[in-house]
Amino acid sequence: MSTTNLEKIKNWNDAGSQLRTWRDDNVRMSKETLDLWSTYIAPSINRLGDEKWLVYEQVFLAALDCQNLTIAEDCLAALKAQFSSSKRVKKLFAMKYEAIEDYQKALDIYDSILEEDETNAHVLKRKLACLKAQNRINEYVKELNEYLKLFQADHEAWLELCDVYLSEMDFAKAAFCLEELILMYPHNHVYQQRYADIKYTQGQYDLAKTYYLYSLKLNPKNVRSLYGLLLTTANLKSSQKSKEGADNSKLNLWAREELDKKYKEVDSDRNLMNSVNDMFQYLAIGKAEK
């Protein structure tokens, strides 16, 4: 959301609808949320009607993000007074403990919620987040795998697991996770491109080339894919002969031209152009033109 839009907000009503959009779109503008809260909404919270409980929760989470514990306490107290036995409020309590790094207390609360409702995905995910926050990576991976056995079709969890494996340099397993993501969202060019990145790193240039091409087909503006294509084809060119080799050099040239075009489009200065050309040369890919 651009700042010009925020400047238009003049009263609690605008602020409320702005928060609603953020809530619906899962946008995490924590700092801005807190600003809106303290300037416009807090003085006239009761005018929001039943929506105010959702706003309390949203502001509470934003306050935790910004480590503003006084606002967080206020929101939590209001929610607690209204919904004394709600699991959702209990979860928020535990999240407050997480924020002050009292993980044991947080985990106790989560476990008590799970006793009643063993398949509450939000709470299971919070437990995982506790492990990650304490940097217990091995346990984290193990628990995440357990979680995925339950929720085989949860794409966020697969994405998270993929990131963890990548940070551990376990490329084969990360590739598996990305394959799951591709199954769920076959038209997302970023997933295709990331899969190609991993395959490139593993040295499977043929596969990498295919998936870079596919991601370019889905989004011709993906510059990272263009670079990826450039590198894979450069690697393949030397190792293959005959027709395929010729095709690869054609693709290589094409990627090169596309990249050149992109840099010209943004009208980059000469220095950048030169450094890009230097880089191409360094990679022994092609000759600089300018």
Partner: peptide, 16 residues
């Protein structure tokens, strides 16, 4: 509704 574990795993497996 609270779903039990077994049911959840099954439906997610079918989905996948």
């Amino acid at each position: 509704k609270t779903v039990d574990k077994q049911q959840l795993t099954d439906s997610q497996a079918l989905l996948r």
